[in-house]
Write a protein that binds this DNA or RNA. Structure first.
Length: 277
DNA sequence: AAGGTGTGCAACCGCAAGGCA
DNA sequence: GTGCCTTGCGGTTGCACACCT
């Protein structure tokens, strides 16, 4: 007997969520909390599968989710945690409050991989990449017929591209010293206000990157535990949150009405139903 | 200006884990 | 112990936008 599909796919909507769908899902969870995701779409009046609702909520609509690019410090943490944990994105995300596994995974695939390769570091192993010639030799030995079909070809395939490209990219693997992940130094082009103001140890233009540093950066992390926050937010006082969504002057109104909400990120819904905090 | 190509990200898919009867 | 159900995870896809020619 085959596996039962997670939901009846007939008549279900796919693709990007609309503002109206977001509103329905938010309203439902505000009213009922996070319950059986399989039942959510039906109860919320959505033509989506439960999985899709859960994903939308956890990755986008959750009030404690952080949007925008990862800071330098967050990126360093991701790299370090990836070196320790591999592609366990949810574990990595659990160390970065407000960041989702999906967001970190996307950031890794689109930004960090390239950055590490440019630095001469293999994003899979976190070890230095071999020089182009050696890499080609190794590839030829391993698979002479298909040496180009390798993940490292983007950077190290010097046989096909103009050698000056390497110079143009300010990168030459011959100059890359053998370094371990914990020795990596990343420059901070634009230190974020949080990192520059909160950490005197990171006042220079680059941060020493090491597991101990990662763990010893208490000022960067929000002072709340996201899970505790969510529990409090959803179980204790939905009415307060609802006020934030429904009132046009949410922040002032909410804080005057319920001062305890000040300790939580304030969720504000725009006219187009996008959320701001 | 138009078409082609590259990039980033939201969302989907399939599988695995864990809980429960 | 077994099978079903739900949730969570990681890999992958596809679309929209930016950039290039």
């Amino acid at each position: 007997m085959g596996r039962q599909p997670c939901c009846d796919k007939v008549g279900l909507k796919k693709g990007p969520w609309t503002a109206e769908e977001d509103r329905k899902l938010i309203n439902f969870i505000i009213t009922n909390g996070q319950c059986c995701w399989r039942a959510v779409p039906k109860l919320a009046g959505l033509l989506r599968c439960g999985k899709s609702c859960r994903l939308r909520w956890t990755n986008y609509l959750r009030p404690d989710v952080k949007r925008g690019l990862l800071s330098e410090y967050e990126e360093k943490m991701v790299i370090d945690l990836h070196a320790q944990l591999g592609n366990r994105w949810s574990k990595i995300a659990s160390h970065l409050p407000g960041r989702t596994d999906n967001e970190i995974k996307n950031h890794w695939n689109t930004h960090v991989k390239k950055k590490l390769r440019k630095m001469g570091i293999d994003p899979l192993t976190h070890k230095p990449l071999p020089p182009p010639e050696e890499a080609n030799k190794v590839e030829e030995v391993i698979n002479p017929a298909d040496s180009a079909n390798n993940e490292g070809k983007e950077i190290v395939d010097g046989s096909k591209s103009d050698p000056t490209e390497i110079v143009n990219n300010d990168f030459c693997v011959d100059e890359i010293p053998v370094i371990e992940p914990h020795e990596i130094l990343l420059s901070c082009d634009e230190p974020t206000p949080s990192s520059s103001s909160s950490s005197s140890s990171s006042s220079s233009s680059s941060l020493s990157y090491s597991p101990t540093n990662v763990l010893e950066e208490p000022h960067f992390l929000p002072s709340f535990d996201s899970e505790i926050m969510m529990d409090s937010m959803w179980s204790d006082d939905f009415s307060g949150l609802e006020l934030l969504i429904n009132d046009c002057d949410q922040r002032d109104y909410a804080t005057s009405f319920e001062p305890s909400l000040l300790q939580y990120p304030v969720m504000v819904m725009d006219e187009d139903y996008s959320l701001n905090f």
